[in-house]
Amino acid sequence: MKLTLHVWRQDGPNDKGRHERYEADDVSEHMSFLEMLDVVNERLTEQGKEPIAFEHDCREGICGSCGMMINGVPHGPKSLTTACQLHMRTFHDGQEIWIEPWRATAFPVIKDLVVDRAGFDRIIASGGYISIRTGSAPDGNAIPIPKADSDAAFDAATCIGCGACVAACPNASAMLFTSAKVAHLGLLPQGQTERWDRVLAMVDQHDAEGFGNCTNHGACQEACPKGISIDYIAQLNRDLIRATLRAKPVEAGKDA
C-alpha cells in the first residue's frame, strides 16, 4: 500500500519544529509501524537527508522506549498495542498518517519524536520501591500472599513507563503511572511498611516534575498499551487521603 506521512521534525529542544510530508510507497501489511519508519529512514539516508529520530529498542512492546502520537492517538489506533507492535494491516492504502511526539511540559522534546521522560525515574526514586537490603530477605515462601492480591499487584506492575498516559491526558497528568506503582507495592504485604510515606513522596515528586493533576477524564486508561485501570488512581487517592490524615498528628507533635 501507499501512505502519506506527516512527521513532526524538530532539530533540537529550542527549534520551533514543523511537519514534513513523506510518501511511503510499497508498504507491506505485515510490517510493523516502526519497520515502516525504518524503510522511510533508509530512503531519507540514501537521499542524503537526516532520518527521523524516534525511540525504540525491544520492538516487543515491553521496554517502553517507543511512543508517538499516530493520528492524534498515543501509540496509534489499535488498543492495548504499543507503536512497535502496531502492524500496517491496521491502515489502508492511500491513508494519511500524522506522526508527532508526546506533548507535555514535563516531557520536553529532544529531537523529532524523541522526548525526555526522566521525570518518571525521579518519581520512582522518590519512593517507588520497597526498602530491602540485598541479602536480608526472608524465605520467599515465608509470607503467603493470596493469589487475588498477587494478581492485582501484577496487573498494576505491568506498566512499561512509556508515557502514553501523560500524552493522552488533557492535563498531562502522570497519575496513572504513579498510581500503578503505588498500587503494585501497596497491594503486597511487603509494601505495607512504607505505604503511607511512599504515596506522599511520589505524589509530591509527580507535582514537582510539572505533571498536571488528574480530573478523571479517563483518557489515560484508553491509551495505556498495557490496559492499566484508572481504578488504581482511585486507590492512590484513598491512600493519599489516609496518609495525609495520618501524617498530621506526628507533624503536630513535632511542632509542639
Binding site: 520497597i130 503467603p144 511487603q190
Partner: peptide, 22 residues
C-alpha cells in the same frame, strides 16, 4: 536460593498458587 527471596521481598509479583505460596 537467595535471588528468589530477594525478589519476593522487593515486591516482584511472581505467580502464586491458591494457597498463597510461590
Amino acid at each position: 536460593l537467595n535471588i528468589i527471596d530477594q525478589a519476593v521481598a522487593q515486591g516482584v509479583p511472581f505467580a502464586r498458587e491458591y494457597g498463597g505460596l510461590l
